[in-house]
Amino acid sequence: MANCQETLNEMYAYLDAELAAERATEIIGHLKVCTDCQSAYEFHAEFKTIIRVKAQNDELSEGFLDRLRECFGDDALNDA
């Protein structure tokens, strides 16, 4: 099982799904028994979600998608 310091150091790698399965299991093992680390983990998981949700809701201008579709025309290929 991982200790507190290791868990906090590797918390983001775990959140980003970048840890090998075996190591992830060790981190989960620690989170299950340590409420301090569990609470820090939940906060950072929420923080990551908040960034994604709040930075991804830009409204598209009217007509923008139509203009984008025009990018896939014959002209683009002929100019290449």
């Binding site: 203009r67 896939f72 683009a76 290929l77």
Partner: peptide, 10 residues
């Protein structure tokens, strides 16, 4: 984004 799509298509 437009430039990206034009480049992607090219």
């Amino acid at each position: 984004v437009q430039e990206t799509f034009i480049k992607a298509w090219r």
